[in-house]
C-alpha cells in the first residue's frame, strides 16, 4: 500500500510536467493551428540554462530557475518574431510554420550539443531527504515539481479566464481575424502566447532534468505530452491536464510493478486503447471549443 501511494505521488508529479508541456502545445495550436515542433528544444534549453546557472555561476536553485525561465522566454519570443511571424504575415500555409519550427528545433538542439556535448548529465541538486507521511516516503523534488507545476497551471487558468488579455487570447483562438476587428493586436497576442510557452517549457525542462537527466535530446519526452493531449482530447487545456495525469500515473505504476523498460510500450498501448473507445479522446468535444 505504501509503495502504491509513493508511486501515485511520483506519477502525479511526472504527470504535472507532462501537463506543462501539453498545455504549451495546446496553447500554440489553438491559436495558430500548427504544432510548435521547437517546443521540445526550448525545454532542453531551459534545463541547460538552469544547469549552467547552478554548476558554473553557483546560483541557488531558485535563482537558476528564474534565469532559465527568462532566457527561455527570450528564445521562445525570438523564435516567434524571427521564424513564425514573418511566415504568418505572408499568410504561409501551416505546413510551412511546422517546417520552420522544426528548423528552430534542429538549430537549438545542435547548438546545445555543440557547446555542452551529447552526454547525459545529472542535474546539480543535492538529493535531499524524502518527507515521511506515516510510512510513505515522498521525494522532496517530486513534491516541489508537482506543486510548482500545478501552481503555474492555476495561474495560467486565472490569466486566461479572469483577465482582459486572457479573454483576448481566447477570442483569438476562436477567430483570429474577428479578434483583430475587435481591436485585438494579433502580434501582441502572439508575444504573450510565446512568453507563456517559454515559461512552461523552462519549468518542465528543469524538473524533467532533475527527475531523469540533462542532455540535448531530452525534449524527446514531449512525445508523451502529445500522447497525453490526444488521450485527453486534442486542443483543450483541461483535457490536456487530465490526460497528462493519467499518463504520468500509468507510467510510474508500470515502471514500479512491471518493468521500466515496458513503460513506453504501455504509454502507446494506452493511447491506442483509449482511441479505440474514445476516438476524440476522453474529454474531446466540439472542435470550436478550443481553450
Amino acid at each position: 500500500m505504501e509503495l502504491f501511494i509513493q508511486q501515485l505521488v511520483s506519477g502525479v508529479s511526472i504527470g504535472a510536467i507532462y501537463a506543462l508541456l501539453a498545455v504549451g502545445y495546446a496553447l500554440v495550436y489553438s491559436v495558430y493551428n500548427f504544432t510548435n515542433w521547437a517546443f521540445d528544444a526550448f525545454m532542453a534549453f531551459g534545463a541547460f540554462m538552469a544547469f549552467v546557472g547552478i554548476s558554473s555561476l553557483f546560483m541557488p536553485f531558485w535563482l537558476a530557475m528564474i534565469l532559465s525561465i527568462l532566457l527561455t522566454i527570450l528564445l521562445s519570443v525570438g523564435a516567434e518574431s524571427m521564424a513564425y511571424r514573418p511566415l504568418r504575415e505572408r499568410k504561409a500555409p501551416r505546413l510551412f510554420m511546422m517546417i520552420s519550427a522544426m528548423g528552430v528545433n534542429l538549430a537549438v538542439v545542435n547548438i546545445i550539443n555543440l557547446i555542452f556535448g551529447g552526454t547525459f548529465r545529472k542535474f546539480p541538486v543535492e538529493s535531499v531527504q524524502p518527507i515521511f507521511v506515516g510510512n510513505v516516503s515522498i521525494g522532496r523534488m517530486d513534491l516541489i515539481a508537482g506543486l510548482i507545476s500545478f501552481g503555474v497551471l492555476a495561474l495560467l487558468w486565472l490569466f486566461l479566464y479572469r483577465t482582459r488579455w486572457g479573454l483576448g487570447i481566447r477570442a483569438s483562438a476562436i477567430d483570429i481575424q474577428t479578434a483583430a476587428l475587435m481591436g485585438i493586436n494579433n502580434n501582441a497576442v502572439a508575444i504573450i502566447i510565446f512568453v507563456i510557452t517559454g515559461v512552461l517549457s523552462a519549468i518542465a525542462g528543469v524538473f524533467y532534468g532533475i527527475k531523469y537527466a540533462v542532455y540535448p535530446m531530452m525534449g524527446i519526452v514531449t512525445i508523451k505530452a502529445m500522447i497525453a493531449s490526444i488521450v485527453g482530447g486534442l486542443g483543450s487545456l483541461p483535457a490536456a491536464i487530465v490526460g497528462s495525469m493519467l499518463l504520468g500515473v500509468l507510467e510510474t505504476l508500470v515502471s514500479g510493478y512491471i518493468s521500466s523498460s515496458y513503460r513506453d510500450l504501455f504509454s502507446f498501448l494506452f493511447l491506442i486503447v483509449i482511441l479505440l473507445f474514445f476516438p476524440n479522446g476522453l474529454m474531446g468535444k466540439n472542435v470550436d471549443e478550443k481553450l
Binding site: R170, A171, I174, T178, D288, K290
Partner: peptide, 11 residues
C-alpha cells in the same frame, strides 16, 4: 460588424 456576424460562438 462583419458579414455573417462572426460572433465568438464558444464565449
Amino acid at each position: 460588424v462583419p458579414e455573417g456576424r462572426r460572433i465568438f460562438a464558444p464565449l
